[in-house]
């Protein structure tokens, strides 16, 4: 195992093991009854032994998370761009957006049910509601801080506005955009779970499974479901990080790539080039 792999995978795993050990020690040391808090392995067993029941419910939560996230992210980018481009709109819409986030999601759920029913739609709306705000704010900030010299340079060269936007402004916004998406990804699963628990469902859901387990004093199932929900949240966050890595390769290069050179030809403006073959006559 390479040192890098050990650092990236081994250390977090070790942290989880320490956390699990601490959990086990507290439950055993304080003689906590199993209907109050289970041991870690009991919680894991509650998931694995009921996997055939839990997996379809988890898929439902994942679906709500993904759909809600995509809708929220799309709305966030849309609002962000519009607001950054139209200052009047930014001044008028921004306070409304802030206000929207001050509304407690729990209070939002019941009216959503009455309007949209008990299906998947209210959950998607709740997730989108949570996700779109950090995305919007970050896109607005990103577009507001684009290097104006680059924009001016593009104008000087006669670049159309759409090309300036796509080739200068969009790349400059990716870092704040992904910051917003990562925040949104973290909260998206929470939103889906809140939606499932607070807005009702046809049949069951991961949140309702947990409610039932809680009613039946099945603490192992309650903790196990929480672990499963957490796993979904972490996986979704890592997927967003992976997407960021894939679409913004330049973010991770600390040293600019060496320009390609033909053997024996120095780049324009370079007097000498270390490592390249000397020009004829030079020696």
């Amino acid at each position: 195992m390479s040192r890098k792999l050990l650092r990236n995978v081994g250390v977090p795993l070790l942290s989880l093991l320490v956390l699990g050990g601490l959990w086990q020690a507290i439950v055993v040391g304080f003689h906590i009854a199993p209907y109050i808090a289970p041991r870690p392995m009991q919680a894991i067993d509650a998931v694995t032994s009921n996997w055939s029941t839990l997996w379809p419910l988890a898929l439902g939560t994942i679906r709500e998370t993904v759909y809600g996230f995509l809708v929220g992210a799309a709305l966030g980018v849309f609002f962000g761009v519009i607001m950054a481009k139209v200052p009047v709109l930014q001044r008028s819409v921004y306070p409304v957006l802030v206000l929207s986030q001050a509304v407690p999601i729990i209070a939002l759920a019941p009216p959503l049910v009455l309007i949209l029913g008990f299906g998947v739609t209210p959950k998607i709306v709740i997730v989108a509601w949570i996700v779109f705000f950090p995305v919007t704010v970050n896109v607005v900030d990103g577009l507001s801080h684009v290097d104006q010299d680059l924009v001016n340079l593009a104008r000087v060269y006669g670049a159309p506005r759409w090309r300036t936007f796509l080739q200068i402004e969009v790349p400059a916004t990716t870092t704040p955009l992904f910051s917003g998406l990562k925040i949104g990804a973290t909260y998206a699963v929470t939103g889906a779970i809140i939606g499932e628990g607070a807005s009702g469902s046809y049949g069951s859901s991961l949140a309702l499974y947990q409610v039932h387990a809680n009613s039946n004093l099945d603490a192992a199932a309650v903790y196990g479901t929480t672990m499963l929900m957490t796993a979904i949240g972490i996986t979704w966050f890592l997927l967003v990080v992976a997407t960021e890595v894939a679409v913004t390769p330049w973010q991770r290069r600390s040293v600019a790539r060496q320009p390609l050179r033909r053997r024996g030809v120095a780049s324009a403006g370079e007097g000498t080039s270390i490592g390249s073959t000397p020009l004829k006559g030079e020696s």
Partner: peptide, 20 residues
């Protein structure tokens, strides 16, 4: 049947609104 589970909702409101 379709069992609608809503721990935080109001059953009567849902009934009178025709949601259930």
């Amino acid at each position: 049947v379709k069992i609608v589970t809503d721990p935080t909702g109001n059953d009567l409101t849902s009934l009178l609104q025709g949601r259930v």
